[in-house]
Write a protein that binds this DNA or RNA. Structure first.
Lengths: 211, 211, 211, 211
DNA sequence: CATGAATGAGACTTCATTCAT
DNA sequence: AATGAATGAAGTCTCATTCAT
């Protein structure tokens, strides 16, 4: 391994170190109340160092979303590759993948919506935004493919696959968000898992061709 | 009408004036980038005045959500009262109501999630938070009732009605959020209406008893 | 005096209060080492208040120069108005005026060059920059007029009046700057007054037509 | 040439390399906006290396002035040595030398004033400051000698030679500064050369004994 | 000797909130 | 009740400088 490469790796490790710290802090405090100093402390680095790896607070924040999207994309692509699986099995695998996405980063998914649904997006560097767009599209596309297959095989109702993928993703994230809200609002127990299962079941029934 | 009452009414009018302005400003700029001065200007009042009607920025913000919840509650309650309607018709009416909720305040629903999914909630005054909790519960309860009826009449699958209501609401808001994100990310056309219709249809198929 | 007008006056007084404090602090520490907090303290105001009256540090700084230019312009215009004076007397009056400009604000004139000769100018608001340009031009124009008169009357050598004005002003400020430098560098006594007198005399001999 | 000496030379070359880079960067951005990293990049060195050759940013900056003073001193000394020249010719040669000083480093002369007229000087190391003082004095002294000669020979008016030298230098730098300002302020064409010529002519007339 | 990643102090600026009028 | 000038705490970000390699 050359020196060049070792440095590259070291740098990537530092980035991850910061991202992990940022995730923790953002999750706990939310975007605004989290300060760069908080994150620096969590990462056991100095504030200035953060800026060597991320242009500003917003880009650091956005990088977290990117990380989820990457994970999601990998998982869904993986499901798609298993050509031996029937659409049914694939759908099941997809649902499992989605749940893993949630477990991979339970709180950040909420912040991810905060990111997308507003203010921040406009200040990101072109390249980062492009990456987000790209991954987003690819992931939805991969999900859509599963539905497409099912439709072609006459198992699912004939609907626009991308629209189905959108609904699938929207339902998933809607449930995650809503259960999170309920936990805050009503200190309810964590029903996420069962609600999610119910939602997935409902979705499946909704697209499957009747009898 | 007594003087007391007239004053009360005047005060309420002022509150609404501020809320309307706040809605506009928050919608355009998001919670953080919107300043109290922005809102004051929009309301043609001075910053100090805002504090005569709202304890602080966060309470003003939360009041917007309250307003949606109130609207939602009224609409759903209204649907429920129509005892002559079949569950099917009621579900249709509910869907329509949800769409109206969205149209009543298209952007604020996004901010509402921002509110709920994080930071702010903890700083609200007990009473306001209670009101939100209460309305939230009542609205979900009212929605659940529709499903309950359908289940009792053997039209819908036998599921926990509140869970169905949660999924219904989560799906609705998930779609709204996701379509909003897509608009920002990919400058897509506004597919909200059709996606929402598709989602509702899927939901209906999902809960309806086969055969 | 209406309320409107009183407020206007109050506001102007505040501006002056800040300018005076800024002048003291900038003179003592220079542009970079002077902090907004220093200035706020000197003005017995809070940092935030400075920003109600000046857009940023650089505009505050530039306003000091503007103040000198205003003073200079008034003085030179005044000299010009005295139609009864011969060009000779006017030149004397001009020299006196220049010296007063210096005394009006001995150290800031140095900073003024710092301002003009560099970095800062580009960040100023259009309007402020325009004002500076305008006053600058007018002042030089007024000085040039004195020379023009002398040339017309055959007292002074026939040279381009504006060029003479430029040289006059350049010599004046050059001497002020240079004597200031010398004071720092060699802790010399303050020879400014005599050097300035010598320079003015030399200038006069230089433009006067030989006997 | 011993190893010692070669090293010495190598070191000096590095210093010059840095100074040249610093000149470019300071000229373009001014003292504050120029960062040590900018300079390092321009010199194709690392930031750390700069500190092996210069104690800090201010000393690096001051070294530029020193370089001009050195150049000025060499030129003026050279003029003085030409014992065969009349004071008149010497004055002409001096003027030419001054113009070359300007061309040697057109923008830095402005920054030199920034240096001298303020903040920085106080933080310099004793030795560097001494060198500046020394060269400064010597250069002015050399200029003064020319005038002294002219006075002794009855060509120039009987004035204090050092005062004349001061005025000469002040006028020169005043014109350079002022023309630079004008270029920024009014985007005027570059009249420096002609203004400088006019100033020199005026100066000469001013000191020369009348007919 | 050279590097350049890391530091961390400190500056500017914003803005929610207060309070005298 | 309404104002809006003033506050001052706090946050983001920069950059001169250091030091382990």
């Amino acid at each position: 391994m050359g020196i060049q490469e070792r440095k590259e790796r070291e740098k990537e490790r530092r980035r991850q170190q910061i991202i992990v710290a940022a995730k923790r802090v953002f999750s706990e405090k939310g975007f605004n109340k989290a300060t760069m100093e908080d994150i620096a402390k969590e990462a056991e680095l100095s504030p200035g160092t953060l800026y060597l790896y991320f242009k500003n607070k917003e880009e650091l924040y956005a990088s977290l979303s990117l990380r989820i999207l990457q994970y999601l994309h990998i998982r869904v692509t993986h499901v798609n590759k298993e050509t031996s699986l029937t659409p049914d099995k694939k759908l099941s695998a997809l649902m499992e993948a989605m749940y893993d996405v949630y477990e991979f980063d339970p709180l950040i998914i909420i912040n991810m919506f905060h990111l997308q649904s507003s203010e921040t997006l406009k200040n990101l560097s072109e390249s980062l935004l492009d990456e987000i767009k790209d991954l987003s599209k690819k992931s939805i596309g991969a999900i859509a493919k599963i539905f497409e297959e099912g439709i072609e095989q006459g198992i699912y109702e004939d609907r626009h696959p991308v629209a189905l993928a959108d609904i699938f993703w929207a339902m998933f994230s809607g449930v995650v968000l809503w259960e999170a809200s309920k936990k805050i609002i009503s200190s309810d127990k964590d029903y996420l898992k069962s609600t999610l299962a119910a939602a997935f079941e409902l979705f499946e029934r909704g697209i499957r061709k009747a009898g």
